[in-house]
Simulated assay, not measured.
Amino acid sequence: MACTNCSTGSKDGGAPKGCQNKGTCGTDSCNKLTVFDWLSNMSLPSGQEPFDCVEVRFKNGRKEFHRNTEKLSLIIGDVVATEASPGHDIGIVTLTGELVKIQMKKKGVSHTSPEITKVYRKASQKDIDIWSDARAKEEPMKVTAREIAIRLQLQMKISDIEFQGDGSKATFYYTAEDRVDFRQLIKEYAQTFKTRIEMKQVGFRQEAARLGGIGSCGRELCCSTWLTDFRSVNTSAARYQQLSLNPQKLAGQCGKLKCCLNYELDTYMDALKDFPDFDTKIETERGVAYCQKQDIFKGLMWFAYADNIANWHVIHIDQVKEIVAENKQRRRISSLEDFALEIIAEPKQDFNNAMGQESLTRFDQPKKKKSRNNNKRRKPNSNEPKK
Rank of each mutant, 00 (worst) to 15 (best):
M1Y: 05
C6N: 14
G9Q: 03
G9V: 12
G14Q: 13
G18F: 03
C19G: 02
N21P: 00
T24Q: 09
C25G: 09
C30E: 04
V35F: 06
V35P: 00
F36W: 05
W38R: 14
N41I: 01
G47D: 11
P50R: 14
F58L: 10
F58Y: 15
R62F: 10
K63S: 03
R67C: 08
N68H: 09
N68R: 03
K71G: 00
L72G: 03
L72Y: 08
S73K: 11
S73Y: 03
I76P: 02
S85L: 01
S85V: 06
P86G: 03
H88D: 09
I90G: 04
G91V: 13
K105L: 06
K107R: 09
P114M: 06
I116H: 07
T117A: 13
Y120I: 12
Y120V: 01
K122M: 05
Q125G: 01
K126V: 05
K126P: 00
D127V: 11
D129K: 13
I130P: 00
S132W: 04
S132N: 13
E139Y: 12
P140K: 14
M141R: 14
K142E: 05
A145D: 01
R146P: 00
R146H: 01
E147A: 13
I148F: 09
A149Y: 07
I150W: 08
R151V: 14
Q153D: 11
S159G: 08
D160K: 00
E162Q: 13
F163R: 09
G165F: 06
G165Y: 04
F172N: 04
V180L: 07
D181W: 01
F182R: 08
K187N: 10
F193K: 09
K200G: 00
G215S: 11
G218M: 08
G218I: 10
S224A: 06
T225M: 07
W226D: 01
L227K: 00
R231Q: 06
V233Y: 08
V233Q: 08
R239W: 01
Q241Y: 02
Q242D: 04
G252F: 10
Q253M: 12
K256I: 04
K258E: 14
N262T: 13
E264D: 08
E264Y: 02
Y268Q: 02
M269N: 12
D270P: 05
F275E: 09
F275C: 02
D279H: 02
E283P: 07
A289W: 14
Q294F: 07
D295K: 03
I296F: 05
F297G: 01
K298H: 05
F303I: 09
A310R: 12
N311S: 06
V314T: 15
I315T: 07
H316L: 05
Q319D: 15
A325Y: 03
K328D: 11
R330I: 02
R331S: 08
L336S: 03
A340L: 05
L341C: 14
L341F: 12
E346Y: 15
F351Y: 05
M355A: 14
Q357M: 12
Q357F: 14
E358I: 03
R362D: 00
F363W: 11
F363D: 03
D364A: 02
R372E: 13
N373W: 12
N373F: 15
K376H: 10
R377T: 13
P380H: 13
